[in-house]
Write a protein that binds this DNA or RNA. Structure first.
Lengths: 255, 255
DNA sequence: CGTATTTTTGACGGCGTTCAATGTAAGTGG
DNA sequence: CCACTTACATTGAACGCCGTCAAAAATACG
């Protein structure tokens, strides 16, 4: 089962590397650390750990010194409100730097929580910062990661500020689908499920789950997507992209 | 005045420097370059120029090699839509890096335009990037500037996604007032006007100018603010902050 | 004093919220 | 294998914030 690399990757691009090895191979550890010389990797004192769904990876009240890189599973950054309401401001996919993604102080109030069971690589923030200081490749990748965050936040603001509900939902799903393809291709694994509930989508888009539900039903009626047990599956990515005039250019720095 | 390279890192914390000199003195050229040793400054080949209101400082179709640092006046970043609609995603104040504020590729579709007549320092992006490579203080400041952008974008998303119109407007104005105070203190100049029209505010908050107007009238009736010839003046900053539960922590990296 | 920009006002409608209840599937423990 | 629990999805009615459209008033500026 480990050797059918050609057919498995046909749907992405060409990926000569082996797939479905039980653990991540060296070149595919994650986009951030790929190709890093072993002596550097040792420095980071990386540990791969498991987390349940709903675990807090970062909390402003106890910042800690840990940086998490997602290997499997999804996480999100959000700002909780007193009344139980919240605004999700980012989703993190496999391969993403989850928290705290920049090796500097984090003055703004946000949490990072896992959405699904996850496998994360835990590293010391101080060590990663130090590594970035000595290794310009890593520094560049960290800068790119931050730049991608700006880019996505910028687009989310446009999305929430200017688009109606159907286009808004479609746009978010198109982005996540695009990023998921990249993550799948980088990590050689994972399925095509978007593990979000309608409540999650509502929290990310400044809507209520009730209205998300009504709109999602229309999208489903148009064969654009499916929903199964807390996950979204895109049935017609092109149709969705057309609906919201999706342009993936802003994701250009992702690897 | 030219040789105080030692203070390079000192101004990152305490600021005992003199104030209220007529023009910007060397140490207060801008937050980004303050205290930089002269030989570095020369490298940048800085030029101070004037721009009319409504001038484009950055356009994705002709990226150019210029970085603009605002000395006087305001600018904004926005994404135009086909139908004349647009979403403003950032305001730039005196002292801010206007465009392109990161010395790397800019894959997302945005413009930067002056909102008022401006005085800008124009530098070469390539030279600034090169300088950041050799001078860690500048690199840190650039990183901080980008980090601040993330922080503000994050908060705008929360604002647009979760707050009702009055709190939303109040929150934006509180942020701008806070940043304006910082800019005034850094550059030793400028007035307390927020040079935005109600249309600008609407474009930034995902609203219409009509509705902004109705809400603004209520705020004005409560003695919270004033509007004169295309500018907003906060009459009761504390009252506004209370209205929207404003917490300036997310602006903590602004010098 | 004329023109452009900005602000203001009114009527009307709809997108999306609120509240509350019901449906449905999966997990848990006895 | 069946009660019980929990999470997620769904539905309906009523409401209201805010958008749309259109026009007029006020203000800035040359």
């Amino acid at each position: 089962m480990g050797s059918r690399s050609v057919t498995l990757s046909a749907d992405l691009e060409s990926r000569p590397a082996s797939r479905r090895s039980s653990g991540p191979d060296r070149d595919a550890i994650c986009a951030l650390l790929a190709g890093l010389a072993p002596e550097y990797l040792v420095d980071l004192k990386l540990q791969v750990e498991s987390r349940n769904a709903g675990t807090e990876l970062f909390n402003p009240r106890e910042p800690g010194d840990s940086v998490h890189i997602l290997m499997e599973g999804w996480a999100c950054r959000d700002r909780p409100f007193g009344d139980g309401d919240r605004q999700i401001t980012a989703f993190m996919l496999p391969g993403d730097l989850a928290s705290c993604w920049t090796p500097i102080e984090s003055p703004f109030d946000h949490r990072v929580r896992t959405l699904t069971p996850c496998r994360v690589m835990v590293a010391s923030r101080a060590r990663l910062a130090d590594l970035a200081r000595r290794n310009s490749v890593i520094a560049t990748r960290l800068r790119r990661a931050m730049r991608t965050d700006v880019s996505i936040l910028n687009d989310w603001l446009v999305n929430v500020g200017r688009r109606q509900a159907p286009e808004r939902i479609a746009h978010l799903l198109c982005e996540l689908n695009h990023r998921l393809e990249i993550a799948r291709s980088n990590l050689h694994s994972g399925d095509r499920l978007i593990p979000l509930t309608q409540q999650d989508i509502a929290d990310a888009l400044g809507m209520t789950s009730v209205h998300v539900n009504r709109v999602v039903q229309k999208l489903r009626a148009n064969q654009l997507l499916e929903i199964r047990k807390g996950s979204v599956i895109l049935r017609d990515p092109q149709g969705l992209a057309q609906l919201c005039a999706f342009d993936s250019a802003y994701l250009g720095l992702l690897i």
